[in-house]
């Protein structure tokens, strides 16, 4: 069935469909069954599946992460949800020392660890340094964790289903602002983990994007199109495992590349991408790969500082112009950070 739905509903549908298909799936975490339902992304589940399979927890992230591991050992498929990825940091001992290593350390005896950890990332209003992290690069750094970042409703739906069905631990990162995005979702359309997606075709420059940067990239591509530049957008979608082939194929064709990772670039996933692209496209590259990410400072709060901290379509246009050797086009009539201005919360 095909429907036009919001990203949040794509997530709740994916959860409902998996829970219907497999009674061993359960969803838990702070605020999961409350009136707001994690920005609507767990809506309807409590009513449909009851408090045994959809529940709130005491304020104990570390214990809940360890409990997810315990439940997985016993044969269930837990989906643990964090309203902010920053709070998943309290469970890092369990995630990194235990969950990511366990299959390997036990010689494969613990062969199935079907744990999904969903976490919200990204900008809201003035979230500051302790409510705004993304951390995909950090998670992907550890062998044994899959890391997924959908940016469209279809991907949210299909990748969440694939993540729940996967027998490996998966970290599933959702940008706060993407929940409002509407798109067609076909529930018969499966997307396996580990494939990038070319979201827009172009011949002049490749924009390799994660999460919200895809939205900024589309705007940047529209602006660049006005001056005849055709940008190609590759949505990474799966940070680990990484589909380098799709990315390299695009860059080999365009010869120019901006890596736009929704995170700090320094020592981050962007650095990994840049290294792989330089290595794989050395002959075809007409300019060094450019990285666009957060300012390398903690995230501030007041809006003017936040606007400086976060990259936007404008940052991407300017970076593309530099790579292409073009003058800066006039952007004075354009609005940037429009989502930020319209954003009314909740925070």
């Amino acid at each position: 069935m095909k429907r036009n739905i919001q990203f949040r509903e794509a997530l709740s549908s994916a959860l409902a469909d998996e829970m219907t298909a497999d009674p061993s799936v359960f969803v838990f975490g702070l605020d999961v069954p409350d009136h707001k339902r994690i920005f609507g992304s767990t809506a309807g589940l409590l009513e449909k599946f009851g408090p045994e399979r959809v529940f709130d927890t005491p304020l104990s992230e570390d214990a809940m992460t360890g409990a997810a591991l315990g439940a997985a050992l016993a044969g269930l498929r837990p989906v643990h949800v964090h309203i902010r990825v920053d709070f998943a940091l309290l469970g890092m001992n369990q995630i990194i020392n235990m969950i990511s290593n366990l299959r390997y350390m036990t010689g494969g005896q613990i062969g199935k660890l079907p744990i999904v950890i969903r976490a919200v990332i990204g900008r809201g209003w003035g979230q500051s340094a302790q409510h705004s992290k993304s951390l995909q690069g950090m998670f992907a750094h550890f062998p044994g964790l899959k890391v997924v970042m959908p940016s469209s409703p279809q991907d949210a739906y299909s990748l969440l289903r694939a993540s729940i069905r996967d027998d490996n631990p998966v970290i599933f990162l959702e940008h706060r602002w993407l929940y409002d995005v509407v798109g067609e979702v076909d529930d018969a359309h499966a997307v396996p983990l580990g494939l990038a997606n070319v979201r827009r075709h172009g011949k002049d420059i490749t924009l390799v994007c994660t999460s919200w940067m895809n939205v900024e990239a589309h705007k940047a591509a529209d602006l660049l199109a006005r001056r005849g530049v055709e940008a190609e957008i590759v949505d990474v979608r799966s940070i680990a495992p990484l589909d380098a082939a799709t990315i390299l194929k695009s860059v080999r064709r365009t010869g120019r590349c901006i890596v736009a990772d929704y995170d700090w670039s320094f020592c981050g996933f962007a650095a990994e991408l840049a290294a792989q692209i330089h290595h794989g496209c050395f002959k075809e590259l007409k300019a060094p790969v450019e990285r666009v990410g957060f300012a390398h400072t903690p995230c501030p709060t007041t809006r003017p500082l936040e606007n400086l901290f976060y990259p936007s379509a404008k940052t991407l246009v300017r970076a593309a112009e530099r790579l292409l050797g073009l003058d800066e086009m006039d952007l004075s009539q354009e609005k940037f950070y429009t989502y930020e201005v319209n954003f009314k919360g909740p925070f």
Binding site: Q127, S128, T302, P304, L305
Partner: peptide, 9 residues
């Protein structure tokens, strides 16, 4: 705090 922390913090 130079505009770097959430209100109340």
């Amino acid at each position: 705090c130079k505009g770097r922390q959430m209100p109340i913090h």
